[in-house]
Each structure stands twice: as structure tokens, then as C-alpha cells.
């Protein structure tokens, strides 16, 4: 294993000496592995547990390990992908504007559910980490984990959490929500797609929303809203809640 890793590293060092080649190589690897992950998920009947983001992260991490490439070098190569998170966040304005009629009809209920869900997510996340003896960094990074990742990373940067940890928590939380969301809520006797969609958007952001969107268009609209509005609400309440929490 050690010698295999060494050989691969030598091949890597021999053929990718130029920064430009390195950028092209890691961009190709990232895109290819993600595309493969998407195909695999479709092949598995769109199973929520076969998440392409997790798949891509695992294989790129393995690639970094066997070519002995530092994460800094990799991130430098693919930072154009990371940059697109900003415009993609702004792009969420379009589904938000498109579904405005549905919102105004159930505005009071939505406002209540949004506040209750946001506060529950932030407080329970931070408290559970602290109660079980987790470090302060981890608790801070856990606070915005239910928000869609571009917003969560921005919030965590602002409050002093670790962006990479928050990204991982947001993705893992989204997968958990997508896997258990619908069955849990049906067991509670909730069949309204507005509630299913909003809950997925607020507690699990993009990954859980994708799961609901495959099932019902009304659920999709409310999931999109949950993502957008939860971003705003959480960005405002996280600094407030952290001000009052111990530590």
C-alpha cells in the first residue's frame, strides 16, 4: 500500500508539474466523480441514501490521499466551482419569486412554522453538542447546519465556526432529513405537502428538498421557500442565540 501510494505520487508529480495541468486534472476528477455519483443514484432508483455529493467528497478525498496532494492545492484548483455558490444563491430568487402567490395564502402559518423550526434546529444542535462534551468550535459549526450550504458557510465564517465542518454537517443533516423525513412525518399523521415541503427546506435544505420535489410540486414550492426564508431567519437569529447561550 505504501509503495503503491508512492508510485502513484511519482506518476502525479511527473505528469502534472504545471499549475494549469493541475487545475484541469482536479476539475476533471471533481466533475467526473460527481457525474458518476448522479448516475449511480439514478441507477439505484433515486435512492436518497446514494447521495452524489457524499460520493464525490469521499472519492476526491481518496484521490488526494493516494496522490499525496494537500487540500490547499486541491481547493486552489477547483475554487471556480466554489465561487459559483454565490451566483447560485442569488439564483434562488427566481423560484422564490415564482411561488409568491402560494406564500401569501398561508403566510401566518408559514411564519410560525419557520420561526419554530429555525430556532429548534439552531438551539438543539448547539446544546446537544455542548451537553455531550463536544468542543466549542464544533458547537458553533453546528449552529447554521440546517441552512442551505452557501448561506451556512457564510454564517459560520461570520460567527467563527469552521466552514468545512459546517459544510459536512449541512450535507449529512440534509441526507438524514431526506432519508427519514417523509416516513417520520406520515407517522405523526401529517400528509399535507405544504408541511412536508417546508419542513424539508427548513431542516434539511437542498438535499431534503430534492427528495420532496420528486414527490409533489406543491411540496417543491414550499421546500424552495423554506430554504430561502430559513437562510434569512437563521442568519439573523444565530448571532442573537449565541449571544444568550452559555460559553
Amino acid at each position: 500500500m505504501q509503495s503503491l501510494s508512492h508510485t502513484l505520487h511519482q506518476i502525479y508529480a511527473r505528469f502534472l508539474p504545471e499549475p494549469n495541468m493541475e487545475t484541469l486534472f482536479w476539475l476533471s476528477v471533481t466533475l467526473a466523480v460527481f457525474a458518476l455519483g448522479v448516475r449511480l443514484q439514478i441507477r439505484l432508483g433515486r435512492a436518497p441514501w446514494a447521495n452524489p455529493v457524499l460520493f464525490a467528497i469521499a472519492f476526491v478525498a481518496l484521490g488526494l490521499l493516494i496522490t499525496e496532494t494537500p487540500y490547499g492545492t486541491y481547493f486552489q484548483s477547483v475554487k471556480i466551482i466554489n465561487f459559483l455558490l454565490g451566483p447560485a444563491t442569488v439564483a434562488l430568487a427566481i423560484p422564490l419569486a415564482d411561488s409568491i402567490r402560494l406564500v401569501t395564502r398561508s403566510l401566518p402559518a408559514m411564519t410560525l412554522a419557520l420561526l419554530a423550526g429555525s430556532i429548534t434546529s439552531v438551539v438543539s444542535g448547539v446544546l446537544l453538542v455542548l451537553l455531550l462534551g463536544g468542543s466549542h468550535d464544533v458547537a458553533l459549526s453546528m449552529a447554521p447546519k440546517a441552512v442551505t450550504t452557501p448561506i451556512a458557510i457564510a454564517i459560520t465564517t461570520q460567527i467563527g465556526g469552521i466552514p468545512a465542518l459546517t459544510a459536512a454537517f449541512a450535507i449529512l443533516g440534509g441526507i438524514i432529513a431526506a432519508m427519514i423525513g417523509e416516513t417520520t412525518l406520515r407517522r405523526l399523521g401529517i400528509t399535507d405537502w405544504r408541511a412536508h415541503g417546508l419542513a424539508a427546506g427548513i431542516a434539511g435544505s437542498g438535499i431534503a428538498a430534492a427528495q420532496v420535489a420528486q414527490r409533489d410540486p406543491v411540496g417543491a414550492a414550499f421546500a424552495a421557500l423554506g430554504i430561502g426564508l430559513n437562510g434569512l431567519v437563521t442568519a439573523i437569529i444565530v448571532p442573537l442565540i449565541l449571544y444568550f447561550l452559555p460559553g
Binding site: 471533481t30 466533475l31 460527481f34 452524489p52 455529493v53 464525490a56 467528497i57 476526491v60 478525498a61 488526494l64 490521499l65 487540500y71 486541491y74 481547493f75 477547483v78 475554487k79 466551482i81 466554489n82 459559483l84 455558490l85 451566483p87 447560485a88 439564483a91 434562488l92 423560484p95 442551505t148 450550504t149 452557501p150 458557510i153 466552514p163 468545512a164 465542518l165 459544510a167 459536512a168 449541512a170 450535507i171 437542498g206 438535499i207
Partner: peptide, 17 residues
């Protein structure tokens, strides 16, 4: 952009290592 939102999380997600 929203359809490939998942891909955009990968660079930061690999920071997990």
C-alpha cells in the same frame, strides 16, 4: 445553477479531510 447545486458543495466538502 440550482440543479447542480450539489456539485458546488464538493470543494468545501472535501475540506472535511
Amino acid at each position: 445553477l440550482i440543479a447542480c447545486l450539489g456539485l458546488l458543495f464538493v470543494p468545501a466538502g472535501v475540506g472535511l479531510v
